[in-house]
Nucleic acid binder design. Structure first.
Lengths: 146, 146
DNA sequence: CACATTTATTTGATATATCAATTATTTTTA
DNA sequence: TAAAAATAATTGATATATCAAATAAATGTG
């Protein structure tokens, strides 16, 4: 089997899948929590769960630091987050989720769970594992520095 | 096996993979053709290959029509493309690649081929087929209308 | 200790994503 | 056929992606 033309490469399928999933997720999230993006939702949950600096969280969700700054800013404006500077190292940022933010998270959790369930419906554990392994191989291939 | 937390879901791996691939591709393309994005590159090649309207091409590459308008505009400015209105249906757009654009395409082709080869190195045809099938399943799951 | 280097974050500029609304042009339908 | 509905593309507003440059603070080195 060949995957030679632009629109028949698996890379193209990966784009298609992630876009379809993002669309589904955003639609379902918007029904319950208006005015939050899936990126913000994921980042909000991670900040609540992990005690990390802004850059560490950015790395975790594959976001550029510049993007992260702006995403955080929007959530500060909406008062989902509070930002303080680390006393030990004033370059660093401490982020914490407000009560308001925590309420949002509680609303988001079941939707996110449901989104994943819908997306992965009828996909066996074996297939998930295969998918995971192949994707990891591709990711590693792409990360080889020259 | 369970994939329950945000950062352990396969969906997360898909994001990771596509971002790694886009990064690799953009870097390699930029070395040979400065000032073109991977999105523009792909769209330029498709326009050259397929005689379709702007919206049809948008559908083909999973782009929003609004995004497509703007991407096209940038390539018109760089004189990679020429745009004319369809005489049969004046709502429609005819796009064609300029000589300049065709020269760019010739430079791009080997890079894109190489990018795919690098990304898919050591991935067997069987794995490719598996990946393709599983991704398609997920895509379909996400597209179910409610 | 002064100065260079590194690290964490921000800002600017430009490209793309997404939704809603608008425009221009068909096509349908009453 | 006139009015309504559908289609193709555009525009506006806002969010995110990416690169480069700038800030500010910490660390390393002579």
């Amino acid at each position: 089997m060949k995957f030679n033309t632009p629109t028949t490469s698996v890379l193209y399928s990966i784009e298609e899948t992630i876009k379809a999933y993002r669309k589904l997720s955003q639609q379902n999230i918007s029904r319950i929590v208006p005015n939050i993006t899936i990126d913000q939702a994921l980042i909000l949950i991670i900040i609540d769960r992990e005690d990390k600096t802004q850059s560490e969280i950015a790395d975790l969700v594959f976001k550029d630091y510049a993007s992260m700054t702006r995403i955080i800013k929007l959530m500060l404006d909406k008062e989902y987050l509070i930002k303080t500077t680390d006393i030990q190292d004033k370059r660093k940022t401490k982020l914490s989720v407000t009560k308001n933010g925590k309420q949002i998270i509680e609303k988001l959790k079941p939707i996110i769970k449901e989104n994943r369930a819908v997306a992965l419906d009828a996909i066996s554990d074996e297939e998930l594992q295969q998918l995971y392994n192949i994707l990891n191989k591709i990711t590693k291939n792409c990360q080889i520095k020259k």
